[in-house]
């Protein structure tokens, strides 16, 4: 997973997953661009797994699907 991609591309490749990406090229439009360091359905798991690796200091974590699943109501 050394290929540099954008957040939009990651959303297409890894639908409804959590993505950990390096963030060494900060953007202002939210369309992050970097290497995908980890991805998966379980946010806790990808963060735990990535913790054991050598990572860049600046990273971004985002979910590629809708924040609230269709048809779901939320009470925080």
């Amino acid at each position: 997973m050394n290929e540099v991609m954008t957040r939009r591309e990651a959303e297409t490749l890894f639908p409804n997953e959590w993505v950990l990406m390096d963030n060494t090229e900060p953007v202002t439009d939210g369309n992050y661009r970097g290497r995908v360091l980890a991805h998966g359905k379980d946010k806790t798991e990808i963060l735990r797994q990535a913790k054991g690796q050598t990572l860049p200091r600046e990273v971004v974590v985002f979910f590629t699907g809708p924040v609230v699943p269709p048809g779901m109501k939320v009470l925080l």
Partner: peptide
């Protein structure tokens, strides 16, 4: 979207995470 989502950045001892 169903929630108002904002970007944040946390600086930590080992990683800075957006």
């Amino acid at each position: 979207q169903g929630l108002v989502i904002v970007e944040a950045k946390i600086a930590g001892p080992t990683n800075n995470v957006v």
